[in-house]
Design a binder for these strands. Structure first.
Lengths: 214, 214
DNA sequence: TCTATACGGAACTGTCAAGTTCCGGATATC
DNA sequence: GATATCCGGAACTTGACAGTTCCGTATAGA
């Protein structure tokens, strides 16, 4: 997803071709600032975040930030909407032939770390979600949905090969691990280990999906 | 749980007996202010909440609040810690003879409404949880833990009567519904209906507990 | 090299809320 | 009724941050 164009109205195909005059707006600079925004958001939350924090982390001036986004709210919305799914995007979905193998194959150390950062970001904007639907939608699309989609894919394949019943509730099943990981991280503040995830898969997800135990 | 004694150091048995002079500090006034705090917290979150909002909702002066709590942070911590479990407290745990019957018997409309308010409160303080462990602990003890404890009770009874395996993971099982309800409310912002809860019980909790489907 | 543009940084303004102080009025004890 | 205590309310002080403006500099195109 591209950053929302809040200032520029130049054609997209002009990005790397010859501009008329002076220096061109650098779109990678946008990304750096947005990423700094997410870092600060994860660390101190929306209200604890100041534009100065974001700017200095991105080695930018505050004026530079305001040249590109009209307000703090716009900056945060854009940052959440443009969030890259570092874990999902480059992640090939495993196809081991069994549901258990696929689910366990999805457990990756960088993916866990990335997931915890995203949960911190959600926690940082949680109080605004009920009053800012656009932000809630953006967070959903960028954070929750990709993760659930991957789970749905491996579950659907398990249905296709007859490993689990065809009427299995994919919507619910795909949300079990995200939900319980979120609770463990945010409320219990316990680390999400590989063992914890395997335990969840074996004692909750697989039985609920209809796989025989053992 | 009593409000933390941040100001008074009078003996507890003196509460309703003869004070020495003038008017006595009114402990129900504390409760009213704490409750107003929770209301505001649920509506606008920690950072959106001002002491003036709390005071005027409790028909109190700001000075009165500061006479009883030293800071906004202390007030909020105390409010969360003293939160009454309106749903759990007066709730007799059903004993229907089956795990499914007990779990479904625990679903009560007022309990759902009360639960959503509590989740709004959690959302309001979410961004502080990772930086204020005492607050996270208080929220967990006051909101999630009572609910999980009830689940553990009915699960233990199911073990005792041989309905589910004796080695069932009560810790995990008792957290399935709280986690998924929290996730649904806070992140998906979808309503928690009776149907949703029954679906969770039938497709996740019971299979994971080892009850035969159907 | 010249020039327009965007830059980082710093100084500035305006607002808003935390926390304090003060006061007139109620209320309970004596 | 006299008195001590706490009350609600309002007027403060203070500090922090959103957002703006300005300036000297760096860089890319002509």
């Amino acid at each position: 997803m591209e950053p929302l164009e809040l200032i520029d109205d130049e054609p997209l195909d002009d990005v790397d071709s010859t501009p008329k005059l002076g220096r061109k707006r650098d779109h990678t600079r946008d990304a750096e600032i947005l990423d700094a925004t997410l870092d600060v958001l994860a660390e101190v939350g929306y209200d604890g975040m100041t534009i100065d924090m974001v700017a200095s982390r991105a080695k930018a001036g505050k004026a530079t930030v305001y040249r590109r986004w009209t307000s703090k709210a716009e900056l945060v919305l854009d940052a959440v909407a443009c969030m890259k799914s570092a874990d999902i995007a480059g992640l090939e979905i495993p196809d081991t032939g069994t549901l258990r193998g696929d689910l366990i194959g999805l457990i990756k150390t960088p993916s866990i770390a990335d997931g915890e950062r995203k949960l911190q970001i959600i926690a940082g904007i949680a109080s605004m979600l009920s009053r800012t639907p656009e932000l809630a939608d953006a967070a959903n699309k960028a954070i929750i949905e990709p993760r659930a989609a991957v789970n749905r894919t491996v579950l659907q394949r398990a249905i296709d090969r007859g490993e689990i019943p065809a009427d299995a509730d994919l919507e619910t099943l795909s949300l079990i691990t995200p939900s319980m990981v979120a609770y463990r991280t945010l409320m219990l503040r316990k680390p999400v280990t590989r063992e914890f995830l395997i335990g969840l898969i074996d004692t909750v997800v697989l039985p609920a999906a209809g796989v025989q135990a053992g």
